[in-house]
Design a protein around this nucleic acid. Sequence first.
DNA 1: CGAGTGACGTTTTTCATATTTCGTCATTCG
DNA 2: CGAATGACGAAATATGAAAAACGTCACTCG
Lengths: 199, 199
Amino acid sequence: MTQEQVAEAARRENVCRILDAAERLFKHYGYAKTNVADIARDLGMSSANIYRFFSSKTDIHHALAHRMMEASYQAAVSVADRKASASERLKDFTLSQFKITVDTMLDEKKVHEMVVVAIEQNWPVIEAHIERLRLLVERMITEGIAAGEFREQEPALAAECFMSATVILCHPQLVAKCLAKSRISTPEDLIEFGLRALK
Amino acid sequence: MTQEQVAEAARRENVCRILDAAERLFKHYGYAKTNVADIARDLGMSSANIYRFFSSKTDIHHALAHRMMEASYQAAVSVADRKASASERLKDFTLSQFKITVDTMLDEKKVHEMVVVAIEQNWPVIEAHIERLRLLVERMITEGIAAGEFREQEPALAAECFMSATVILCHPQLVAKCLAKSRISTPEDLIEFGLRALK
DNA sequence: CGAGTGACGTTTTTCATATTTCGTCATTCG
DNA sequence: CGAATGACGAAATATGAAAAACGTCACTCG
């Protein structure tokens, strides 16, 4: 292992530790109430040292968002790659996204604060994430068409419609609102509805 | 016409004038920047007089929201009552709701402020409005099933799913966001998608 | 008598400034 | 030499007193 590789590994390790600490503190005290000095103290280092790995507090926020979305995407990929019918996979894909959103929002107030900021300022990473997911959906739909499971249709368009139709299961703010109110339909009902439109 | 009826008519007239003035000022200067004295001055009356018709500034806000939703509901009813296929009416219903939402949001910043407050605090009137619309949709779906246009299904469940699927066309905040971004699908595409799920 | 008002107590908002936090850099230390 | 830091200026935020807005009520006037 070269000198550079060792240094790089150490750097990654530090980045990860900082993100872990930041995530924990943000979730516990809220994003606004936690300052970089708090994060540094938690790790037994100086706040100046944090800035060797992140250019700003916002940058940490970005990185955390990226990490969470990456995890969400990996979960999605592992569902999309399964050996199962397109319908089955689309259903599990959407349920998995729903579950992740619910779990993320369970911390409520603290996480909500961070999500709102990211959405209100509509960070490009969010759009990029949605687009990646859309491509996954598009692929599953294409496969479903090939298998004769779905009717002939434009996969790109169908993917966007399917995701729009199930947006209340994946959009953090909508999920937060809808969990509270009494509803006739379950998530499964809505997914079933979306799948029918594809067939 | 009795004494009471005259008085009642005068009261309604005042209520209406106040709401008109409030709506205009709120849209021009924003809800927060407009105070009750401004509304009163605009009408050549004292602010104390406003409180003979509305118990608070918030009450005016409520009344305005109610008036707008009532207009939206009447537009919806007139579409739902038309002589046309259920598909056609459901499509026009959704497009009409979409148009109203877009037009309402066109004033952007000023109206947005009021809508956000109403949604964040989730006023019961909003839930009630959505429920009324859902009942209209349910009726159209029931008629569509009877006409053999849609498959056999639970109308109440189908109505909620259809509305959930088209929520991005009717939810003020989502519409505001989605108008900005480039999309593959048009509103018509999404409605078509929702209708397919019913057939 | 009752529609309408000016005056007034209470609550909320504004605004100036005191304090905290952010982010940089020259310097230390292993 | 480079990882790490304390000290520091700039930017943001908390604070609290002053001003404005809210909402009430005794009173006026047609």
